[in-house]
Design a binder for these strands. Sequence first.
DNA 1: TAGGTCTAGTCTGCGAGTTT
DNA 2: AAACTCGCAGACTAGACCTA
Length: 227
Amino acid sequence: MALISDSAGRPTGSGYARVFGDNRLGELISRVHATSIRCGTELEQMVKQRVTLIDDLDDFLLMEIMPEGVFVADKRELKACRTLDFAGSEPDFLVFKRRRGQQACHVIELKDGDSFDTKKASAERNSMHSFISYNASRLPYIVHAYFCCFNQTDRSAIHDGFKRKIAIEEAMTGREFCDLLEIDYDEIRTERAQDGPANLSFFVAALQAIPAVREELAKYGLGKSGI
DNA sequence: TAGGTCTAGTCTGCGAGTTT
DNA sequence: AAACTCGCAGACTAGACCTA
């Protein structure tokens, strides 16, 4: 995961500073927010480190029979691909998998949350299906669509979050995503949880170092000896 | 009809990648 | 190197819709 101490945040003028009327406290909250955003991009990086990435998607798509295994095209590779037409949308991952004579392409939208934002769900679904319909003839495999909430363990919760506008088979939990890619879900969760204690310590120490916070704590007889 | 719920649009905030 | 663009999370709001 990401460390709050590594995140910059806005030193002055952030909305958080206005909420508290204190730049230093505003900066600290801004750094927490920045860390949360970084976590999302780090998840994608962690996935990419654990799979076999496709070097040239155009070349890969020339094969009617793909090699045995799991091969992944990320967003960068998708953008560089000339064979596919994005129809205004780019999924997070294209996963090509061949096992025991069965091969398929899995189009995946990955979120680092536990549910899809309802107001955007309909647009996400339309975007995904327009991508698939535009490219069905260019992908020489069976194509499946998935919407994955990495931190959700219940597929029906994802389905409900989508207001049931997707098929239940299109909802995917983080564990199912990792099973498809043949990577270790628990290992990723464990690694991401490792920075939690360091972030807690940093946050509390930084909080205590802010004069306005110390003054407030002093009203309750707290502060010097800890919160 | 009033009140509750759902949906979609807008806004703020930030990191990361791309373009100039 | 700076400016720009995109993606993502979450809060707020107004209008549509539903139900007692």
